[in-house]
Write a protein that binds this DNA or RNA. Structure first.
Length: 492
RNA sequence: GGCGCAUUCGUCUAGUGGUCAGGACAUGUGGUUCUCAUCCAUAAAACAGGGGUUCGAUUCCCCUAUGCGCCA
């Protein structure tokens, strides 16, 4: 991409915790960071925040990485593209956090806390009873350094707490404007756990400083953490980055989109036959719009038009119907060989196809899939639409009779058709010619087109809805058509 | 419970101190000499409520309600 690094001062990151698969919400956060970086010519960084050792897995990390690649969100620096800023997995950066924590300890901006969990719990309960907001009393802040060191030497379990300076903090958010917080309500929070691993609020800030992050674009759920982080920046003598808190993606019940709402992982959508471009297009429009009536965007359009200024403030319900519509749109615009290639795994899964198709089969398959290109919204739907080309359909009497028709006329039409079809030259077995031939046939025999064409189509497909009769005939071939017409007659 | 954020058709959203409040999805209807889909046309559908400010507020301010998020 041209101009990729034309603005070295703009550096953004997507910093997922590998505690689960890549889902819609985080994918959009990644996308917005990506679009912002590409739009401005800045740098897009992937950083794995794996400090939750209990829940982080390598599988999740791989899933996130694969998902981002699938969506085409390529990053400039990350775990597999080590840049000038060291490692991009937090567990590989423990030494850095330690250094920063030490600095804060020395400057009395942090202190060791030896309080036992049970004591803290008791304290909390008492505060709750009194109806005040529970927060740490700051008991250990007053311990002398000697005393603290002695306890540490004795291997007493301890955490490191950050000293909250009571004051008004204004978060200047690019999307929400100035948001004011009162830090006296916070209480000294734990920044390093007893196992020496830092918690999110701290490690996240340290990394953003170290990696020279200029803009933090993340979900609104982090807005409440931001004042604490600003205090950390200040304690460390660093200038906070610009913040942009993007609105949540919601489920139909308007709560934060989560597993209980059904499919939320990128994998799920991929498996259901959604296209990466359609998903990117769709999620870009969740909480952002270009201010025009445009609905369909190429990657380049998005990069060109994206701006933080046009990000929404309120949450957006994930509307699968619109995704489907968009996906159908993208499917219709696919080249037929590409679409066919995408369909094959689904046909194999449905046992309609076993081996990879030969060249001849592939040509036939492309013709078949062409019939359905405007009729499917997701790739996975393909099998259910074209199964009758691969196996004999189930034919119900009910389906053979047109909506306003009756059994008698239907039988007459099929009987006549069975005879007539034998007279058609093989060379004329081509959709357009068949159309002329059959319309003539209808006219000569006093059939309304629907009285003949509906039963034929039903006989071929066993379905109430499908592609047109003539296109199907062309692909099925005369012999198969005759066979299926006769079978239909026997059902009537 | 405390703090914070939000509120335009069912959903995604545009928009302005005076607009027929616009578009898209979904829905209804009609058309495209066979169904379905595509495509086209068309209809119905919204400024949470209450106070201000103002000649006038959907738009600016306040309150309430509701929803959501974070902390615990």
């Amino acid at each position: 991409m041209k101009n990729r690094h034309s603005d070295p001062n703009i550096r953004v990151r997507f910093a997922p915790s590998p505690t689960g698969v890549l889902h819609i919400g985080s994918a959009r956060t990644a996308l917005f960071n990506y679009l912002f970086a590409r739009h401005t010519g800045g740098t897009f960084i992937l950083r794995i925040e794996d400090t939750d050792r209990g829940r982080s897995t390598i599988e999740s990390e791989n899933n996130i990485i694969e998902g981002m690649k699938w969506l085409g969100l390529d990053w400039d620096e990350g775990p597999d593209a080590e840049g000038p800023f060291g490692h991009y997995r937090q567990m590989e950066r423990l030494g850095i956090y330690k250094k920063y924590a030490q600095k804060l300890l020395v400057e009395n901006k942090a202190y060791h806390c030896f309080c036992k969990p049970e004591e803290l719990e008791k304290e909390r309960e008492a505060q709750m009873k009194e109806g005040i907001a529970p927060r740490y009393s700051g008991k250990c802040k007053n311990k002398s350094k000697d005393e603290a060191e002695k306890l540490i030497a004795l291997n007493t379990p301890h955490v490191i707490r950050f000293v909250i300076e009571p004051k008004k903090i204004i978060v200047n958010d690019l999307i929400r404007g100035n948001v004011e917080f009162d830090s006296s309500l916070f209480g000294d929070f734990v920044m390093v756990k007893s196992d020496g691993v830092p918690i999110f609020i701290f490690s996240n800030v340290v990394d953003d400083i170290e990696m020279k992050i200029s803009h933090v674009i993340r979900g609104e759920d982090h807005l409440s953490n931001t004042p604490k982080q600003i205090l950390v920046y200040e304690a460390l003598g660093a200038v906070p980055p610009q913040f942009a808190h993007i609105p949540m993606i919601l489920g139909p019940d308007k709560s934060k989109l989560s597993k209980r709402h059904g499919a939320t992982s990128i994998d799920d959508y991929k498996n259901q036959g959604f296209l990466a471009d359609a998903i990117v297009n769709f999620i870009s429009l969740l909480g952002w719009n270009p201010g025009t009536d445009q609905e369909i965007f190429t990657r380049e359009d998005l990069i060109k038009q994206f701006s933080l200024e046009r990000i929404q403030k309120s949450g957006a319900v994930f509307n699968i119907e619109k995704l489907k519509w968009l996906n159908g749109n993208y499917i219709r615009n696919l080249k037929i060989d590409k679409l066919t290639e995408l369909c094959i795994p689904y046909l194999q899964e449905a046992s309609l196809m076993v081996l990879a198709p030969s060249e001849k089969e592939l040509a036939r398959l492309e013709k078949i899939i062409l019939l359905e290109q405007s009729r499917i919204q997701t790739i996975s739907e393909i099998s259910g639409h074209i199964d009758y080309f691969f196996k004999e359909p189930q034919i119900d009497q009910k389906i053979l009779i047109p909506k306003k028709g009756n059994a008698e006329t239907t039988k007459k039409a099929l009987d006549a058709s069975a005879v007539f079809i034998m007279t058609i030259d093989n060379a004329d077995f081509e959709a357009n010619k068949l159309k002329d031939i059959w319309y003539k046939f209808c006219e000569q025999n006093n059939f309304k087109p629907i009285e003949v064409l509906w039963p034929l189509r039903a006989a071929f497909t066993g379905k109430e809805a499908s592609a047109g009769a003539f296109e199907i005939m062309e692909i099925l071939g005369k012999e198969k058509c005759v066979e299926r017409i006769n079978r239909a007659i026997s059902v009537l």
